[in-house]
């Protein structure tokens, strides 16, 4: 079992706020890790450290052999990591001035140097895969939230990532659109994509996760197989959190 992500005693502060506390986490190739925890517990910050969108003050992160040092001081590694790690955001963050196909083909063209016809062909294949090829010539503003998020996933996949990060990918969606996005993620998991997912969709987590991590005030307090965490949580914090979120 080779670890794609290796986080070693990560500490992060926002000013006086200690957001991540000695976080130790390994993610194996092909593993699906779901991170749960209360609002403000540091879930987003944790996964944003993995692709260097947040710098940390102490510790070490290795992503597919590239070492990210504290304070973001590792330019080449950062570049390598970002080309190999895809990220899907709660707010989609599609590029509104480009059509869907250009959103997907931009990074392969500019980062990998793929020629345009090849990149567009690849974009079409990916859009087909997330069931949205018929919208390829539209602009993001003309799509529903669920469609936009599927485009965002296709855009990340275009860089053929070794790891995908998802930060609450369905939280900004109307309920009837959540399913179509989760379906795409389910399919990715089935194909063996390594994923770190922050989500409040507990039944989805139970279904796709190989491991669930509960984080409280910046520290990992409990982790395990989904059935262990959801059915027999050991830590009182996990118990009270799950009691709260599983009530509805």
């Amino acid at each position: 079992m080779t670890a794609i992500v290796h986080m070693d005693k990560i500490n992060k502060h926002f000013g006086n706020l200690h957001v991540l506390k000695d976080v130790e986490l390994d993610v194996a190739a092909g593993e699906v890790v779901v991170i749960i925890g209360a609002s403000g517990s540091g879930k987003s910050t944790l996964i944003r450290c993995v692709n260097g969108l947040e710098a940390f003050q102490d510790g070490r992160i290795e992503v597919d052999g590239h070492a990210l040092a504290a304070h973001g001081k590792s330019h080449n590694a950062l570049k390598a990591v970002r080309t190999e790690v895809g990220m899907v955001f709660q707010q989609f963050n599609l590029f509104p001035h480009m059509n869907v196909r250009d959103n997907v083909s931009l990074a392969p063209i500019k980062v990998r140097g793929t020629d345009r016809p090849a990149a567009e062909k690849q974009a079409n294949a990916l859009l087909e895969r997330v069931n949205i090829l018929e919208q390829a010539d539209k602009y993001p503003g003309q799509l529903s939230g669920g469609q936009q998020q599927r485009v965002a996933i296709a855009r990340s996949l275009a860089m053929e990532p070794r790891l995908m990060l998802f930060d609450e990918p369905t939280s900004a969606l109307d309920p009837e659109m959540i399913g179509e996005v989760l379906d795409v993620m389910r399919e990715l998991a089935r194909e063996g994509m390594t994923m770190m997912i922050v989500t409040h969709e507990m039944s989805f987590a139970r279904e796709v996760a190989d491991r669930v991590i509960f984080i409280h005030q910046g520290a990992i307090v409990e982790q395990g197989r989904p059935e262990e965490i959801f059915d027999h949580p050991q830590h009182p914090r996990t118990q009270s959190f799950l009691a709260r979120v599983l009530k509805h």
Binding site: L53, R82, E84, L106, A107, S156
Partner: peptide
């Protein structure tokens, strides 16, 4: 988020 999306794609 626009900047973050660009950077996260490796740009």
């Amino acid at each position: 988020g626009q900047r973050e999306a660009g950077l996260s794609l490796g740009l």
